[in-house]
Amino acid sequence: MLHIVNKSPFENTTLASCLRVVCKGGGGALLLIEDGVYAATKNSVAGNAVHDVMGDIQVYALWPDVEARGIQDRVLEGVKMVDYGGFVDLVVEHSNVQSWL
């Protein structure tokens, strides 16, 4: 299953909830979009949490959102960048998708 998170991990518990449910049950892939991409920054509390789950799930971030926010040089190693086309491919590759709004 592809899980999409669009909230900053610094003001919202959405990412934490998603990781709690996804990592304990089932696994899958996580795509960070919009303000969710801040979770992909290294040397940050949220980035450390994401780093810890990368053995369980694949983590992707939407490059246009990363670049728009000026964090392209601070991205956590192992987070794969996708553009909107890559986003579409991820949805196609997974049999189901959930947006954690």
Partner: peptide, 26 residues
Amino acid sequence: VNEGPYTHQATDSAYQFAKATLEKGH
């Protein structure tokens, strides 16, 4: 699409996603 224009990015993201699906032949 669950949010209106300009306040939230949701509709922008949805639009870019929609365009990409069409470009990929879906």
